[in-house]
């Protein structure tokens, strides 16, 4: 450490912290944290998360800077019998480190609240899907589209969806990581999730609440398809008496097991 910095440790530390913060933020923002974004909620949540990261890095860096600097500067030899400076406190400092975190978390909370309101906003004319959980499988009913029922979740891109989540037995949790959405399925209750799929692709609905022996494997396919393909899939389902979720009905249009490209390509 240069001499100038040694004489003005706070300035030096501020400088080092600033650089470390910049580097830290650059690193954390460059990490590819999330799975792909496939719903309207995902973009907002990812941005919120990035903001949280940006807010957190300086806090961590600040703490570490003081710790590391103190250890480097104030460490004494084992036999040293001297004492530190008898400083008991400093009111101004204490006020600062109460107010700044207070304002920071308040701002983040407000931002979080705004995002929450946004992602839960009701859309007009949503596609209603009844998600039914049981040990250890999901099934999906489309009450607005005739008596269609399926054991894979097929959604049209771009149309708002409203999930109504039910369970037959214990608590499960409906989660599609690419949608960033999750809600428990609770006995005796119907829970709701709203979003709009924004990306054509093949994902998974994952059970996220411990529900027994089969919890690990309670995963099923989610397909987001172009609206036209969705219409075709629906009519096919209806034609084959779609309330029985036979695999044949599904394969005909969305072809699980065939590669993603093939399936989606076929739908186009």
């Amino acid at each position: 450490m240069s001499r100038a910095l040694r004489r003005r440790p706070v300035l030096g530390m501020a400088l080092v912290s600033l650089i470390a913060t910049a580097v830290g933020i650059a690193i954390v923002l460059n990490i590819n944290w999330f799975p792909v974004q496939a719903s309207s909620a995902s973009t907002e949540i990812d941005t919120l998360y990035d903001v949280l990261l940006i807010a957190s890095v300086p806090v961590f860096v600040l703490v570490m800077a003081v710790v590391v600097y103190s250890v480097l500067a104030f460490r004494v030899k084992p036999g040293d019998l001297s004492d530190g400076a008898p400083i008991h406190g400093n009111t101004r400092l204490e006020v600062i480190w109460v107010t700044i975190p207070f304002m920071l978390v308040s701002a983040l909370a407000v931002y979080g609240w705004v995002v929450l309101d946004d992602i839960e906003a009701k859309a007009s004319n949503p596609l209603v899907v009844d998600v039914r959980a049981r040990q250890f499988a999901w099934s999906f009913d489309y009450p607005g589209e005739g008596k269609v029922s399926s054991d894979q979740l097929v959604l049209p891109k771009g149309r708002p969806v409203e999930f109504r989540i039910h369970t037959k037995d214990v608590i499960h949790s409906f989660w599609v990581p690419e949608f960033r959405l999750k809600s428990d399925a609770v006995p005796g209750l119907t829970t709701h999730l709203r979003t709009t799929p924004t990306r054509v692709g093949r994902y998974h609905v994952v059970c996220a609440e411990l529900c027994g022996i089969g919890h690990s494997t309670m995963r099923q396919r989610v397909m987001v398809v172009p609206p036209a393909a969705f219409g075709r899939w629906l009519s096919h389902k209806k034609a084959t008496g779609g309330d029985k979720s036979d695999a044949g009905g599904d394969t005909a249009s969305v072809t699980p097991g065939v590669g993603y490209g093939a399936a989606v390509g076929g739908l186009r």
Partner: peptide
């Protein structure tokens, strides 16, 4: 989120305790 404030007081006070101390590592 407000719990960050009293917890922060603790973290900051600890590192301030080290400041200008005679640290035995």
């Amino acid at each position: 989120m407000l719990i960050a404030v009293p917890t922060g007081i603790k973290i900051f006070s600890w590192i301030a305790t080290m400041w200008k101390g005679a640290i035995h590592l």
